[in-house]
């Protein structure tokens, strides 16, 4: 028997400051090839567990054909302070939408 079983394997991340296992964000690809969508998050000590937990929590009723799990810490998110500079300038520039172009006859509009 190995004597070093008390040493954590390299794959096991340390628990976070709140005492919980590390958090992972879960993205599911719905059937028929639709784009991945954020489904929620799970706690897990490594990627394989995160994948299994994501499957068990979010994909057990046939919701997905593919799963991504990403360490939450790997995600860089915009902040509430970014809302103004990031998104407001788009509000008064409707010409950035393509509705101003007339659709040639013969092109099916979806």
């Amino acid at each position: 028997m190995a004597d070093d079983h008390s040493a954590a394997p390299a794959s096991v991340a340390t628990t976070s400051r709140d005492g919980q296992w590390p958090l992972w964000e879960v993205f599911l690809q719905p059937p028929r090839g639709a784009p991945f969508e954020h489904a929620g998050s799970v706690h897990a000590v490594d990627a394989e567990s995160a994948l299994q937990n994501a499957r068990d929590v979010y994909a057990r009723r046939g919701e997905a054909v593919n799963i991504w799990v990403v360490p939450t810490t790997a995600i860089t998110a915009s902040t509430p302070e970014d809302v103004g500079p990031f998104f407001d300038p788009g509000n008064d520039k409707p010409y950035r939408h393509p509705q101003f172009y007339s659709v040639p006859r013969g092109v099916r509009v979806y």
Partner: peptide, 11 residues
Amino acid sequence: PILEEDIALAN
């Protein structure tokens, strides 16, 4: 032991 595993065992 944790919520995720609770669901896994029930599955």
